[in-house]
Simulated assay, not measured.
Amino acid sequence: MKSAAFYILLGFSILNGFTSCTVLQWRSNDAEIQAYFAEKEIPTEISYFEIDSMDLKIRVQHIKQSKSDINIIFFHGSPSSLSAWNGYLNDTAFVKKARIHAVDRPGYGYSNFGDAMTSIDTQAKVMSNLLDHYDLENVIAIGSSYGGPLAARLAYENPRVKGVVMISPAIDPNNEKKIWQSKFTQWWITRWLCPTGYRVAGDEKTVHAQELALIANDWSAVTVPVLHIHGDIDDIVPYENIQYTKEVFPDIEIITTPNTGHEIAWGRPDLMKPLILKFMEKVFLE
């Protein structure tokens, strides 16, 4: 008969072994980000948006070379950090067409690392305040996985958002796939073994369906154009989420990327970038 310690170690090994958004557990500090973009010869700024009443500090990276008045803001999934979007922030096509911003969501990267904010509504309100603080106009909000419904909720909160791109979004409360490995982040006997980003992701995942249900009736008020991109063999966020977005958003475009899974935001930027750029043209030329 195997001991409890054996099962704990087995569970931890499995937890570290499973992929999806978890491949982006890492985070880069400010100096590493500056060095990376200096090597690419792309000037970048890093700032911290603070809400004293919440004891909250949100890290934001900015690429502001463009003379355009269009702003793109990226929201990552879980666990992850703003560095997940490096391939977009250093792309000359994006740098020329818009000012670009990437955010460490609460609990990740260097935004109160380890302190989960499980409410999508609260996160969206924080990001709405962030848009106002930096005076960002003509915003395209882009989110992957968990960041998808956050980007859409931001459009509900703030009229500065003129368009939303959701990549592999976990948005249907009735089609929220259970990831059994996340249970290790919730059991007291195994939680301490899990890396910090995994624990935050587990905290979010545990209540994600309930949080989506709380805001489900508001999607009809999001009248800006919404683009939903989803891989048809996504094994983390079911492809059937597209049926939900078709029903709840007034102005929705669905694009299926064939034979692709959940990691298309960072795994297939060759597919995502042209779609995002085309969407930008649609939003601001119509």
Rank of each mutant, 00 (worst) to 15 (best):
A35Q: 14
G202I: 00
E137F: 02
K40W: 08
M166S: 01
P274Q: 05
G147Y: 00
A98Y: 04
H101W: 14
A141K: 03
T206V: 14
T256S: 12
G107R: 04
G143V: 06
W26R: 09
V95D: 01
V23M: 09
G267C: 08
M127W: 02
M166E: 01
Y88R: 13
L271S: 10
D69M: 11
L24D: 02
E253F: 01
S13W: 13
T256M: 03
T245A: 12
N158R: 09
D270P: 12
L130S: 08
I51A: 06
D232V: 07
V161D: 03
L271A: 08
P159S: 07
I264G: 02
D104I: 03
Q186I: 07
F75P: 00
N71R: 06
G148E: 01
Q210L: 06
W188S: 15
M280L: 13
S78A: 15
D270Q: 13
I255S: 09
G11H: 05
E157Y: 06
D69K: 15
A155N: 10
Y36K: 05
M117N: 06
E281A: 13
H101S: 15
Y156C: 03
N29D: 15
D234C: 03
R191F: 02
P149K: 04
M117C: 11
V95H: 02
Y7R: 05
F113W: 11
S182Y: 14
F74W: 03
P195L: 02
P238L: 01
L24P: 00
S111P: 03
P159K: 07
G143T: 03
R153E: 09
S220D: 10
K162N: 14
V248K: 10
K97M: 08
N86Q: 07
A4V: 09
K178W: 09
P274L: 07
D55K: 11
N112D: 13
V164P: 08
T44A: 02
T190V: 12
I46D: 00
S47A: 04
E41P: 02
I215Y: 05
C194I: 12
